[in-house]
């Protein structure tokens, strides 16, 4: 069964149609990259998958998205967002909370663990996000004392702690230095063995490095989708070829 199935998805902000009929099937336990130039609708597509897009006023959504066969529009939105974790372009750990609380807070609020069990979940999530060794001595420190790359891994830990089925990543390395970005990419390689990862990137090179499948989005439409080798070595569409060779973007 596919992790995510998108059918005829149209998203409109007031008068502006951002997604103009998107169809995509995202298999489970792979890294699926959505690439395209700025303004093509890739972040909108990602934010529709956990219905975060609904925070914007005047958004209209048509079409269907199914998460493991179940329509995301028919389940409780808070449950959906627990099952579909998200990591953002700007690392956004809560600045007023400690490293520990950043991970533990949503675990407590969502009733995932209680008492001592929370400690175990926090340690597990930080280990999964390859951050534990760097922060285990200072869990009570404020999260905004971490470096950009560490903050981003903390955000990944925070999402993983809720045991999601799918992890959405919206240009997770766009604001990081190359070394920190490499660490995140290595982490994605590890995580995709257990989770379905959907990553949005404006860098074809990054898509080629981390993903098994790639969709090329252009002006609100999926131009081409396929396995990573096919897209980069034998693109069927002229626009895709232009994009992956750096002639548009």
């Amino acid at each position: 069964m596919n992790a995510v199935e998108i059918e005829g998805l149209r998203v409109r902000y007031q008068d502006l149609e951002v997604l103009k009929g998107v169809d995509l099937d995202i298999p489970a336990k792979v890294c699926f990259a959505i690439m395209g130039p700025s303004g093509c609708g890739k972040s909108t597509l990602l934010k529709t998958m956990n219905r975060l897009i609904e925070l914007n006023e005047g958004v209209k959504i048509e079409g269907e998205i199914r998460l493991f066969g179940e329509s995301i529009f028919k389940v409780d939105v808070t449950r959906l967002r627990r099952e579909v974790g998200m990591v953002f372009q700007h690392p956004n750990p809560f600045p007023h909370m400690s490293i520990y609380d950043n991970v533990a807070f949503a675990v407590k609020c969502n009733g995932i663990a209680k008492g001592k069990e929370i400690d175990r979940v926090v340690e597990w999530a930080l280990k999964k996000a390859a951050l534990w060794e760097e922060v285990k001595e200072r869990l009570k420190n404020k999260a905004n004392q971490l470096s950009g790359g560490q903050m981003q891994r903390l955000c990944i830990a925070r999402a993983l702690a809720l045991k999601p089925k799918v992890l959405l990543m919206d240009e997770p390395t766009a604001n990081l230095d190359p070394i920190a970005a490499n660490k995140i990419e290595d982490l994605i390689q590890e995580l995709k063995k257990e989770y379905t990862i959907v990553i949005v990137t404006h860098s074809p090179a990054q898509a080629a490095r981390v993903a098994e499948y790639v969709a090329f989005l252009y002006m609100g439409r999926v131009i081409e989708v396929g396995e990573v080798n096919e897209i980069f070595e034998r693109p069927k569409n002229e626009l895709t070829e232009k994009y992956v060779t750096g002639r548009i973007g």
């Binding site: 925070l55 808070t78 974790g85 953002f88 956004n92 809560f94 949503a106 969502n110 999402a159």
Partner: peptide, 11 residues
Amino acid sequence: QFKEGAYALGL
């Protein structure tokens, strides 16, 4: 971004 981060955690 902080509000979005919080909503994305199912709060």
